[in-house]
């Protein structure tokens, strides 16, 4: 098959996907109606990206929410006090993808509170706040230096940050729509100049398990 024909076939295939309703945002920004407000607003429960990377003997977890925020909108942005962010950790040998540990973040009166890492009270779609608070910090306000809470070897930060995600989403959408056949070089970062509300937690690896763990983040609304 010639390349141009191949691209046409691909274009048609992608067009079919659009017609079938697969609409791409990215990475997980405004991914579903349940976490998207009016005017395509990314709600406090909308997780945009999750990161997990080592810093020496510690593991750093980043959970970003409320994507595609303009600088003008950032000063007024707040964490939703009805929403708990949870980092789920599967650290058993079987890797059954059921959480063995949870790190939970709640937001109240301008502060972020970390609970855990602890074994979950219940697993599944209903999360129960685990007992105790490991570390707290003031939520950093827009324009201020990061406020960092430290206790028990655990660090926490919560506040607005530059969205670390980068992607030429606009061209991807054109490819999906069949109006472009390939990416531009160089591409254009659709997420340049936009902010997110970030939760960053750094935990000693010794509190997480051994070997390899599987993790996922969830947002959970208070019942």
């Amino acid at each position: 098959m010639k390349n141009t024909t191949k691209m046409k076939v691909l274009g048609i295939a992608l067009l079919v996907i659009v017609a079938s309703g697969a609409y791409l945002i990215a990475a997980d920004h405004i991914d579903a109606p349940g976490v998207t407000g009016s005017g395509s607003a990314s709600l406090g429960s909308d997780i945009t990206d999750v990161y997990a990377f080592a810093n020496g003997d510690n593991m750093v977890f980043v959970v970003n929410t409320q994507g595609l925020m303009s600088p003008a909108a950032t000063a007024a942005a707040t964490f939703d006090e009805e929403v708990m962010l949870e980092i789920n950790i599967d650290n058993d040998a079987s890797k059954d993808h059921v959480e063995d540990l949870v790190i939970q973040a709640t937001f109240k009166d301008g502060k972020v509170h970390i609970h855990g890492p602890k074994a979950p009270v219940t697993t599944g779609l209903i999360s129960t706040q685990v007992s105790g608070t490991t570390v707290s910090a003031d939520i950093t306000e827009y324009g201020d230096a990061p406020v960092i809470g430290t206790a028990g070897g655990i660090k926490v930060f919560a506040g607005p940050r530059d969205d670390p995600f980068f992607f030429d989403l606009t061209t991807y959408k054109e490819i999906i729509a069949g109006t472009a056949s390939m990416f531009d070089n160089p591409g254009t970062d659709t997420f340049a100049g936009t902010n997110v509300m970030s939760l960053v937690v750094e935990v000693p690896k010794s509190q997480l398990g051994t070997g390899t763990i599987d993790i996922w983040a969830t947002s959970n609304r208070k019942n």
Binding site: A22, A27, P33, G34, R221
Partner: peptide, 28 residues
């Protein structure tokens, strides 16, 4: 100790829901 929450969003690898799941109710 009885504060409970119901899951709304889940994410691990980037762009999985957005790329692979049809829009609307299936994404939720």
């Amino acid at each position: 100790p009885a504060i409970t929450y119901t899951q709304e969003d889940q994410m691990a690898r980037p762009a999985i829901n957005t790329v692979f799941i049809p829009s609307g109710a299936p994404k939720d």
